[in-house]
């Protein structure tokens, strides 16, 4: 209810009757259980995370004098910098790949499928609802040294020795993540394509644009919001992904989340782990905002 008071700050609340009949207050009254749950399970934990990142772990005792020592360590250590750059690099690649692969698919459903659109959308989103852990595990089976690809090619007689470069490297992480986040790209792009006023396309055709220039001058610029939405929805969570690098990344494919987990489990240095995760969210937010600004600017130039 704290939020309700904040919003209603200067509204004259004269009686209980008035209080109950105010639309806004009724709304906030109904929202308050969800808000309370979110404050307890989201806002409070994140605040504590920030606090921890300002503290220091001295062996078994926790020094609660605020300092930026953890952040100095995070930004001053080469090993962490490598992990940051790799995480951002991998998730940028995943974002580009996933969006580029999803665009034609979304275009197909939005413009070419006349009947049974619903079925196509269900077919494209059902894998997203299945266990993430199992989907990543499936890729471990596919790419492994004795895995599906290697054993398949050997039993077909195409190769005699298994490929070693398939599993336990950054490429395996990129492929697995691109598969896991496909639905995140398809839905936003599909929605933005579906919203395009078809008469604009007809007008362009009437005025002499061919299919290709029509696509680049109308369809693509108008679908940029969907593309940006998809990119953010993929880039943000993949940078902090833990399961995929842990299962298919090997040593060279480890990402920042794996280091965070190590700090919270094995090393037991929670302040450092907290600083690492906050720094990574900051980096992600920075890159995402820059990309959005640049994309908006580019679209304005095209128009």
């Amino acid at each position: 209810m704290a939020a309700a008071h904040g919003v209603m700050g200067d509204a004259p609340v004269r009686s209980t009757r008035h209080f109950l009949h105010s639309e806004t207050l009724r709304g906030y009254f109904l929202v308050s259980p969800a808000l309370a749950a979110l404050i307890f399970t989201l806002a409070a934990p994140l605040t504590l995370l920030v606090l921890y990142s300002l503290w220091t772990q001295n062996d078994l005792t926790l020094d609660t004098n605020p300092s930026l020592a953890q952040y100095e360590r995070v930004f001053g250590t080469d090993a962490y910098r490598v992990l940051f750059l790799r995480s951002l690099g991998i998730s940028s690649l995943v974002t580009l790949l996933t969006v580029a692969m999803a665009y034609p698919m979304a275009y197909f459903v939005a413009f070419k499928v006349k009947r049974a659109k619903f079925l196509w959308l269900i077919a494209l989103t059902v894998p997203f609802w299945t266990s993430y852990l199992l989907r990543v595990f499936a890729w471990k089976i596919i790419l492994g040294y004795n895995g599906v690809i290697n054993s398949g090619l050997i039993s077909l007689g195409l190769i005699s020795d298994p490929f070693e470069f398939l599993l336990y490297n950054p490429t395996a992480v990129v492929v697995t993540l691109a598969h896991a986040f496909a639905a995140f790209a398809i839905l936003p792009i599909y929605v933005s394509l579906e919203k395009i006023d078809r008469s604009l396309l007809e007008a362009a055709a009437d005025l002499g644009d061919g299919p290709v220039s029509r696509f680049f001058r109308i369809t693509l610029p108008l679908s940029v919001p969907g593309v940006i939405g998809a990119a953010v929805l993929i880039f943000v969570p993949t940078t902090g992904d833990y399961v995929t690098p842990a299962l298919v990344g090997g040593t060279d494919g480890l990402m920042i989340a794996n280091m965070v987990q190590v700090q919270f489990a094995r090393v037991n240095n929670w302040p450092l782990g907290a600083a690492l995760s906050i720094a990574s969210m900051g980096a992600v937010a920075f890159v995402a905002c820059m990309t959005i600004v640049m994309a908006r600017f580019a679209v304005r130039r095209i128009r």
Binding site: L42, L48, Q261, F264, G273
Partner: peptide, 21 residues
């Protein structure tokens, strides 16, 4: 925005911050 925030935070961050809580 507040209610959809969990979608934009990596699970690992949600996990460790809940552990701290």
């Amino acid at each position: 925005g507040f209610a959809t925030l969990p979608l934009f935070i990596p699970d690992i961050v949600l996990g460790i911050s809940l552990l701290i809580l």
